[in-house]
Simulated assay, not measured.
Amino acid sequence: MAGSLLTVGGILALTLSVLVAITLGPAEISLVNVRDVLLNHLGLADIPVRAAKNAIVWEERLPRALVAAACGAGLGICGVIMQSLLRNPLADPFVLGISSGASTGAVIVGVLGVGSAALGLSGGAFIGALVAFGLVLLLARLAGGSNDRVILAGVASTQLFSALTSFVIFAFADSDETRGVMFWLLGSLEGVRWDDVRLCAAVVLLGTAVCLYYAHVLDAFSFGDQIAASLGISVGRNRLMLLVVTAIITATLVSVAGAIGFVGLVLPHAARFLLGPRHSRLVPATALLGALFMVWVDAVSRVAFAPTPLPVGVGTALVGVPAFIVILSRRRKVR
Results as ranks from 00 to 15, higher is better:
C78R: 02
V326R: 07
A306H: 02
V303P: 11
R281N: 11
V245T: 13
T178Y: 07
F94H: 12
A2V: 10
R193L: 07
S234R: 13
R141L: 12
I29K: 01
D298Q: 03
V321K: 00
R278G: 15
L282Q: 06
L137K: 09
W296E: 12
V319N: 01
A118T: 13
R278Q: 14
A323L: 15
R87S: 12
A220K: 10
V32W: 03
L231G: 06
H269K: 03
G313V: 09
R50T: 05
Y214R: 08
H41V: 05
F170T: 11
L138A: 09
L328N: 04
D174M: 06
F305H: 06
A91P: 15
L121Q: 12
R330N: 06
V210D: 00
F293P: 10
I325A: 11
A257F: 03
A153R: 05
L31W: 03
V300D: 11
S234D: 15
L212I: 01
A153D: 14
L5K: 07
V204S: 02
F324C: 05
L135W: 10
G115D: 04
G207Y: 10
G72P: 14
L274H: 09
E190M: 13
V109A: 03
S329N: 11
P63G: 03
R239E: 08
I108D: 05
L142R: 15
L164N: 12
V244A: 15
S100T: 06
L16F: 14
F172H: 09
D196E: 15
G258N: 05
A70Q: 07
V131L: 09
G276Q: 09
A156E: 11
L310Y: 04
R272C: 12
V32T: 09
V254R: 00
C71Y: 10
W184M: 11
L90F: 08
D298F: 01
S188E: 03
L12Q: 12
L292K: 09
L318R: 00
R35S: 12
R64W: 03
D92Y: 00
L328R: 08
E28D: 08
